[in-house]
Design a protein around this nucleic acid. Structure first.
Lengths: 211, 211
DNA sequence: GCGAATCCATGACAAATGTCATTGCCATAG
DNA sequence: CTATGGCAATGACATTTGTCATGGATTCGC
């Protein structure tokens, strides 16, 4: 059996924490620092510095908030896992099913919502450090029941652009399409998601993590 | 000089914490519990139970998250301050200027964003317990520079309803107005807020705390 | 009491948005 | 091979939305 990372050295778990809210980050540091077997070795308030710190400190576990400026938790996780031998746990406020899928695709080891009792988080950290994976049951269930994306590629394109653009004409220009075409894609997307407007459709698709 | 509430009894600060995210609440409890002079005597995950617990435990300070289900931090604060002799600190993720105004109107003693360093929060709690007030400088500045609401009563009505309604026709029905009239209000609101759509206008007004 | 200003309310008009029927293309199952 | 179904793409059409000019009510200063 392969030795777990931390037992090979000190038996203690070296932890990196990334969260953009100082209050929460500080509180987590203090709380987890209390646990006898966990050392908080680095802390960052955005995805980019999290990746940098992971490189210099080589923690056993990286605890990443999903919602962060510069680079979100998923981007940071991808970068970190490509460069450092560590494991990643994603913490999030709004758990969208599609995000869980993408997280698992990028080899994240844990996925917990912020509604997790604080105490349980330490358990999760230990489990993951021991080589296990942990996915919050609620989110897992939601991701499994959620039907797969019914939207076509172009519909997704149109929705994606519509999130940052006001008028159909501009979307059409960006996609190099006739405005009627774009309206059609958005319309069919709205029907499939039974949304009431294109903004609503984009919102719903985003909630599902499809765009 | 009037004695502060806590020095009259034990010299220790009795604290109530309310936040809907267990992870954060737990972490805060642990962190603040470490401070020698603070006792966490109650904790709630929504505004309603926060108000109930405040009544039964009579804490010196109530630390309330603004974003909570059932009743938000402001509603809870109003209720608590009407029934219990205590002081309230509001903690929030998104600090909208208008909310600060309403908070101060309802006699809240402290107002801090979640970006506050964890350590500083303990200071704030002590200051407030000692009878002072504390308003985060950033938010205060934003609230002071922000111009007063340029919208008329009916415009605000229309915007408020438009947040939960899809079509102008329905808004008009709820307000007992002709649909043209409603469109007019929304239109002028959009101009004043230079918004690009009625949803955008409603969003901006909400950001400012005007609705 | 009389403008001036502001708000409330409305309908006519123009522009945007969403719906629909249609066409061509491509894959693939029979 | 061909035909059936899904997707990309388009323009015509109806509906919805936002803009504008207008009129009446109310409040304020003078």
């Amino acid at each position: 059996m392969i030795e777990t990372q931390e037992s090979a050295t000190t038996g203690r778990i070296r932890l990196l924490i990334a969260d953009d809210e100082h209050l929460i980050r500080g509180a987590l540091e203090a709380l987890l620092g209390l646990e006898g077997d966990i050392d908080v070795v680095a802390s960052a308030d955005n995805g980019v510095t999290a990746a940098e710190l992971a490189l210099t400190t080589s923690p056993d576990i990286c605890l990443l908030d999903l919602e962060m400026p510069q680079a979100d938790g998923l981007e940071a996780a991808t970068k970190i896992l490509a460069t450092v031998n560590t494991r990643v746990i994603i913490v999030t406020r709004h758990a969208r099913p599609g995000v869980l899928r993408r997280a698992l695709a990028s080899k994240v080891s844990g996925f917990v919502p912020k509604s997790t009792p604080a105490q349980e988080l330490a358990h999760v950290i230990r489990d993951v450090a021991a080589g296990k994976r942990y996915i919050d049951p609620e989110i897992a269930a939601a991701a499994l029941t959620a039907e797969r994306c019914p939207l076509t590629d172009r519909e997704l394109d149109a929705l994606r652009v519509s999130r940052s653009t006001t008028s159909v004409a501009q979307i059409a220009k960006q996609l190099h399409l006739a405005s009627g075409t774009v309206r059609n894609y958005l319309s069919s997307a709205m029907i499939k998601l039974n949304a009431v407007s294109r903004h609503d459709a984009a919102e719903k698709a985003w909630q599902q993590g499809w765009i």
